[in-house]
């Protein structure tokens, strides 16, 4: 995939998250992956089509997901990753992806995004590409959110 397509996602993350009450996120790692991603516990998959095709996964631990859900809900305690917390993570994924899609549109690409699918489990594999793709790790107030980005320009 083309590395220039990563920035719209990183930019979306760094601009959207502070609006929801998080500290400025930092990009800590960026690397190329060939193999399947392994879920950290909670993985949200969102698909892209039209001029940009592929998938993006927001991959995080259950604890990180609870931390994010709690912050999004104005600090409400989140003890279990329950329905409300799941909705919050889904909603976050939606916002991030829609924002990234807007950034891609700004680059002249027509894109359509699917609804997010939230998957929960331990050590399951996620395959989003037959070829290399890019993984970005973002630091969000000491928590790690991994973005697995496998999108290509048609």
């Amino acid at each position: 995939m083309d590395a220039k397509l990563v920035n719209p996602f990183v930019d979306a993350f760094t601009s959207v998250m502070p609006q929801m009450g998080f500290q400025e996120p930092k990009r800590t790692k960026l690397y190329v992956r060939e193999k399947n991603a392994v879920s950290r516990g909670v993985s949200v998959i969102v698909g892209f089509t039209k001029q940009i095709r592929g998938n993006v996964v927001y991959n995080m631990s259950v604890d990180t997901a609870k931390f994010i859900a709690s912050t999004m809900m104005m600090g409400m305690p989140v003890n279990d990753f329950d329905t409300m917390a799941q909705s919050a993570i889904s909603e976050m994924s939606n916002m991030l992806t829609a924002n990234a899609a807007t950034n891609l549109t700004g680059m002249g690409f027509e894109v359509d995004i699917s609804t997010p699918s939230l998957t929960i489990g331990e050590n399951f594999q996620v395959k989003i590409s037959d070829t290399q793709y890019l993984t970005v790790e973002m630091d969000l107030g000491g928590q790690v959110v991994e973005l697995d980005i496998a999108v290509d320009q048609q």
Binding site: T49, Q86, F124, V126
Partner: peptide, 18 residues
């Protein structure tokens, strides 16, 4: 339209679609 597939495998995976 359809997006390209994302495939998961493993045991005891739960998929939620709020």
């Amino acid at each position: 339209r359809i997006t390209p597939p994302g495939t998961i495998y493993g045991t005891n995976i739960r998929i939620a679609s709020p």
